[in-house]
Simulated scan of single mutants.
Amino acid sequence: MTSSLNKGVGKVQVTLRWDPSPAGAPDHDLDIIAAVYPQEDPHGTPVYLVHFGSRSPDGTITLDRDSRTGQGFGSDEVMTLELERLSPAYGRVVVGVAIQQGGGRVAFADVAGGQVAVKEGYQELDNLPLADLGPATAATIAEFTRADGGTGGWRWSRSLRGFDADPRSFTELMGGAAD
């Protein structure tokens, strides 16, 4: 599935929600992570990461809401990506979700009500129940690539790949080429 917009995608929101852990169980803490890759090496080492407690150096990617428990109404985490403002030096952005493993191993299948959505304005590009990722503890969910060698608009595609990795390890794996 890829974007069919002629001008490409511009400003995108990735939203994440999940239900709180059962009473007496450790909190489930899920995090949205974005990795930005250079135009000349789109599957190499990311130039920078955006996650809880950080934002992109130029302010184009921000985590607007961060939850450690899944409590509350609506989206628990929200990340905004202003792709049209990214420097032409960047050619690929990969967005994923990772589960903190501080309270013992937790997989997506263990998290009730988990849902991730990708939206541009009012248009929903994708919506995915996290339980579909089963035993994975981290997953890529979206990939944005710049068309025409850095001069064109951004294209969106679903990039659903599950990993058995903690958040730190995941950031080293998430941008690799798909098998």
Rank of each mutant, 00 (worst) to 15 (best):
T2N: 12
S3D: 15
S3P: 02
S3W: 07
S4M: 11
S4L: 13
N6S: 14
K7F: 10
G8T: 00
K11S: 14
K11N: 12
Q13S: 10
Q13N: 11
V14G: 01
T15S: 11
R17E: 12
R17T: 11
D19V: 05
D19K: 12
S21I: 03
S21H: 02
G24A: 08
A25W: 06
A25C: 09
A25F: 09
P26C: 09
D27G: 02
H28N: 14
D29W: 03
I32Q: 04
A35H: 08
A35F: 05
V36W: 06
V36M: 10
Y37N: 04
E40W: 09
D41G: 09
P42D: 03
P42K: 05
H43E: 11
H43W: 11
Y48A: 00
L49F: 10
V50F: 01
H51E: 13
H51V: 06
F52V: 03
S54N: 05
R55F: 01
S56V: 08
D58F: 08
T60G: 07
T60S: 13
I61Y: 02
I61K: 01
I61C: 05
T62V: 14
T62M: 11
D64P: 00
R65Y: 08
D66A: 10
D66I: 01
R68L: 13
G70T: 06
G70W: 00
G70V: 08
Q71M: 09
Q71H: 14
G72F: 03
F73K: 11
D76E: 15
D76S: 15
V78Y: 01
V78A: 04
T80M: 02
L83Y: 06
R85F: 13
L86P: 05
S87P: 01
P88N: 12
P88M: 10
A89Q: 12
A89S: 12
V93Q: 04
G96V: 02
G96R: 00
V97I: 15
I99F: 02
Q101R: 06
Q101A: 06
V106R: 08
V106Y: 06
V106I: 15
A107F: 00
F108P: 04
F108R: 06
F108S: 08
D110M: 11
A112T: 13
A112E: 12
G113K: 02
G113C: 04
G113W: 00
G113T: 01
Q115W: 15
V116I: 13
V116S: 01
E120K: 04
E120G: 07
G121W: 07
G121Q: 05
Y122G: 15
L125G: 07
L125N: 00
N127E: 14
N127A: 15
L128P: 03
P129G: 11
P129N: 12
A131M: 03
A131H: 09
D132N: 12
D132Y: 10
D132L: 13
L133Y: 13
G134D: 15
P135F: 10
A138M: 06
T140Y: 03
T140C: 11
T140F: 08
T140D: 05
I141W: 03
A142T: 05
A142I: 03
E143W: 05
F144Y: 14
T145M: 12
G150L: 02
T151F: 09
T151Y: 08
G152I: 04
G153F: 03
W156P: 00
S157R: 15
L160P: 01
L160Q: 10
L160K: 02
R161M: 04
G162M: 06
D164N: 14
P167Q: 11
P167I: 06
F170N: 08
F170Y: 11
L173K: 15
L173P: 07
A178N: 09
D179P: 15
